[in-house]
Design a protein around this nucleic acid. Structure first.
Lengths: 231, 231
DNA sequence: AGCCGCCTATGCCGCGCGTCACACACGACC
DNA sequence: GGTCGTGTGTGACGCGCGGCATAGGCGGCT
């Protein structure tokens, strides 16, 4: 499925490399290696040495961190076109600071540190893109932080649902269906709450008709009502 | 206090511009403007239009966000040499996403978007620095997020104290004194907790002899004990 | 089919934390 | 010195959330 031509097109559609001419992009392609990961397999784990950048071609990847006690904080759930593992790339001999796990059958391009550095030095415009992407990510994390500090669980769940709907929404008949199958456990990790209480929040929203919950799928029926924090 | 020569030296000591030769740095100096802010005054507020980068020359700046309800989440307390307001710089016509307030008499260099962009394009090495700084910031925010999600207030306070001691520590006789005067209210905003409970945590730590609390000043006496989460 | 594992759903209990309420210490300003 | 504002200490109360326990549903595997 990922012939060279397709890979090139995919790269071009990435926020990171958008705008780079295919001619410029092509040499980079040789340095990428395509890797496949089965559902639930780990792409890397916290503590692993790592100096590769990962570009998600297809599938879903969860970036998370687990505590001794068994709790899991999920920093992000990424879809096609997004980049991860970039932190370890920036310094030599770095160590991964979180786990990356495939939530679905996933393939991603893997680029070694050196190749990336060389490419970026040759293409300052892309470097600028990197800065933009990172900045946006910081903004979102600040958002998540204050969200976690101030809002109760229903509020956080509501926000996260809207966020997911925006990022991964399929307009399906009545409402926006979140296309990724996300378990309530995962959702709990994303909003920093227990699975049970996330469930309760979802149940309440559902009974109010704001959302519709099916097994592994959630449909946001009334986004604007949900935005007003379902009680 | 900030003659051109000193300003140049200060720039050179910044994580961002370290390693750039003074000769290369000098043209940039002309584009900076020095601004002073009195204690408690706002450098900018959420919603302000803003396309200037701020480089902190002296003083302390608090980056925070306030809710309608009066709560305040503090994203960072920055000291000399650190940079803020970079998010708004990256896109044209951007709007500030948080407040920046001087915690002490503060002066900072202010650089307009265009000048920065021009400089960065001329100096890819500095661009790389920017990426590094941003990445490190992301890592810290992930850290803060999982901290907030998992640890109770004493634990969070302990970590934050250690962090502050490391970043702003003065070795004073017995223990590391945090050189910035930080009110318990501020500390509360940083760890996402109420002032009262932060106080209780501090009191407990103090009674255990792990820290010493004076008006506006905290001294970490036994860092390693504190790291083990004071009960 | 039958078993098993994961996800979902809901009740109950205990506790941490937010909130209110009040008292004290200290510096600023008149 | 008196007053006020702000930072600090501490107690009481109520609630939201985490944890456990329980039960049903659905799919996968043999």
């Amino acid at each position: 499925m990922t012939l060279p031509g397709e890979a090139l097109a995919l790269l071009g559609r990435t926020p990171l490399f958008a705008g780079v001419s295919p001619a410029d992009l092509e040499p980079l392609l040789a340095d990428f290696r395509l890797r496949r990961y089965a559902t639930d397999s780990y792409i890397f784990r916290e503590g692993d040495p790592g100096d590769h950048l990962h570009l998600l071609a297809a599938g879903e990847v969860k970036i998370s961190r687990t505590t001794e006690a068994g709790g899991e904080a999920i920093f992000a759930v990424l879809g096609a076109g997004e980049v991860f593992g970039e932190l370890a790339v920036l310094q030599e001999n770095a160590v991964r600071s979180a786990d990356a796990q495939a939530l679905a059958d996933t393939e991603c391009f893997v680029l070694h540190r050196q190749a990336l550095v060389a490419f970026l030095q040759a293409h300052p415009a892309v470097m600028w893109r990197v800065i933009t992407v990172l900045s946006e990510r910081i903004r979102r994390k600040d958002e998540a932080f204050s969200d976690l500090a101030f809002n109760d669980i229903p509020g956080r769940v509501a926000r996260k649902l809207l966020e997911l709907a925006e990022a991964r929404g399929d307009l399906s008949g009545k409402g926006i269906q979140i296309s990724v199958p996300i378990s309530q456990r995962t959702l709990a990790g994303l909003v920093g709450a227990s699975r049970e209480n996330v469930n309760r929040a979802l149940s309440r929203f559902a009974s109010l008709g704001l959302i519709k919950v099916e097994r592994g799928h959630i449909t946001v029926v009334r986004p604007d009502e949900l935005r007003r924090r379902g009680v």
